[in-house]
């Protein structure tokens, strides 16, 4: 099985202060820690497991700044066979449609059976790049996938629905799948492992190499145009309980008791 996995380098913003740039068109990146998008980590693991079971090779790809190389090396250390980067300059500010155009060009360079993407990117959270890419390729797709079984030229996948329900879908190959967290337990990557792939060549492709013409992608070609970023309005905030942990704990217990939650 030839598998292409699309990965994105994203900042960890769950546990960090996020500040706007003065121009209001982006966030300050200086103090943030970056790494592989959580959903993509599961996608890479799943691709490697499919390869281990059914043979073939795994290629990881990203469209991003030079720093994204670290993310690709991490994927190589996990067991991906090849990594490729698309030169970001012409994609700067591209919306998911532009990114998907680039990834589609890349997917056409080889006879892939499967393209995996994350269900969602933790930064912009569109959750659309995978299915849009499938549309450009004209391949069937399934989103929010939580298991994959290969059945010859077909696969059976579980799609996560709401409320602990899944649906089973048979999908013909080649196909695009977006991977949901929890599908597997991604393997641990050691510093040693990363060191081993230090010298592996990671080609950087130009838009022309993937059949994307000048001006076809990037900010000016976007279907979605940013009108700017802002911090959310204060709105209905919680009543903050202040004081030493012991005082706060007492307040919490009082509330629990008052509200009939027992304790």
């Amino acid at each position: 099985m030839e598998i292409l996995v699309c990965v994105k380098r994203v900042p960890d913003t769950a546990d960090a202060e996020v500040a706007l740039r003065p121009d209001g068109r982006g966030i300050r990146e200086e103090d943030l820690a970056f790494g592989i998008n959580e959903w993509d980590n599961y996608a890479v693991e799943e691709a490697i497991r499919l390869k281990e079971k059914h043979g073939g090779a795994v290629t990881v790809a990203t469209i991003g700044p030079a720093e994204s190389e670290d993310v690709l090396r991490r994927c190589l250390a996990m067991g991906a066979d090849d990594a490729v980067m698309i030169d970001e300059a012409s994609f700067r500010g591209a919306d998911p449609y532009g990114i998907a155009r680039g990834l589609a060009g890349l997917a056409r360079r080889k006879a892939y059976d499967l393209v995996l993407a994350g269900a969602l990117a933790g930064d912009d959270g569109y959750g659309m790049t995978g299915p849009v890419l499938a549309g450009y390729l004209g391949w069937p797709h399934a989103t929010l996938v939580t298991s994959i079984e290969v059945e010859g030229k077909k696969i059976a996948v579980a799609r996560e629905l709401e409320g602990g329900l899944e649906e089973i879908l048979a999908v013909e190959l080649p196909a695009v799948l977006t991977i949901q967290t929890g599908i597997n337990e991604p393997r641990y990557v050691s510093i040693m492992g990363i060191r081993k792939v230090r010298s592996k060549d990671i080609p950087v492709l130009a838009p022309a190499d993937i059949g994307v013409g000048a001006g076809e992608v990037g900010e000016n070609a976007n279907l979605l145009r940013s009108l700017g970023l802002s911090t959310p309005p204060a709105g209905a905030e919680a009543v903050m309980l202040k004081g030493a942990p012991a005082e706060v704990a007492q307040r919490i217990l009082d509330i629990v008791k008052e509200r009939g939650g027992v304790a």
């Binding site: 769950a14 966030i27 930064d123 959270g125 700017g228 970023l229 911090t231 959310p232």
Partner: peptide, 19 residues
Amino acid sequence: LAATRSVYNGKIDERLAFA
């Protein structure tokens, strides 16, 4: 038409227009 989206783990709002 314009849309508001919540990004970066709910810490930032983005306004979007459509081409």
